[in-house]
């Protein structure tokens, strides 16, 4: 289990996480849902080590053992689809790039630049790049924005088979119903959730 214990984060006067505690399952897909601005992204950023909490700790995992998919794609316009994966994969694992492209249904786009991809394809490339990183916990912020529903469900099924657990943020009812665990969050500030 991964534990977030008593986390507090604030931006100026605005408290986003207020003594927030959470248990994240070791396996499967856990979905976080809640109103916009309630602190879901902040929670992922704390787990990824991008935000330092004012108070509290994360136990069971270190930021270097996580891989985060940002809310925006953050693709490099000058790198092809395949290069995005080989930039992240260690050289000895470059052979895994086709499997990642198959997982996100981007086969045949290896040599395409991001400007030529649709919004959904760009999102799937960002997801593939995140999954290329060896991690013990994948943090996915709105991974299926702009992706069609049948494809979302197929990819979600493949995410479930990953060796590491996935914690994702989504507002999509179909994603929430397909996830192994769903946590409804309220806020801001976020209050603790007991499983």
């Amino acid at each position: 289990m991964i534990f977030c214990k008593d986390l507090s984060v604030s931006y100026g006067d605005r408290v986003v996480l207020d003594h927030f505690s959470l248990k994240i399952p070791d396996t499967g897909v856990t979905a976080l849902s809640g109103p916009s601005g309630c602190g879901k992204t902040t929670l992922l950023r704390v787990l990824a080590g991008l935000e330092r909490p004012r108070n509290g700790t994360v136990e069971g995992i270190s930021p270097r053992q996580t891989a985060i998919l940002f809310q925006d794609d953050r693709l490099l316009p000058w790198r092809t689809v395949k290069q995005h994966l080989t930039d992240v994969l260690p050289r000895e694992r470059w052979g895994e790039a086709p499997a990642l492209l198959a997982l996100t249904e981007l086969e045949g786009e290896e040599h395409t630049f991001p400007a030529a991809l649709s919004g959904g394809m760009g999102r799937r490339l960002a997801l593939a790049r995140c999954l290329a990183l060896p991690a013990r916990l994948y943090l996915l912020d709105e991974p299926f924005a702009g992706v069609d529903l049948p494809r979302v469900l197929r990819i979600l099924e493949r995410l479930r088979a990953l060796p590491a657990p996935v914690l994702l943020v989504s507002h999509e009812p179909a994603v929430l119903s397909a996830a192994d665990t769903v946590m409804e969050l309220n806020g801001p500030p976020l209050r603790s959730v007991d499983l």
Partner: peptide, 16 residues
């Protein structure tokens, strides 16, 4: 800066 943050998260070396 978002690209630099991405590079840091995805463990790019300084040179990379």
């Amino acid at each position: 800066p978002r690209l630099l943050e991405m590079a840091k998260c995805y463990r790019f070396s300084r040179w990379k």
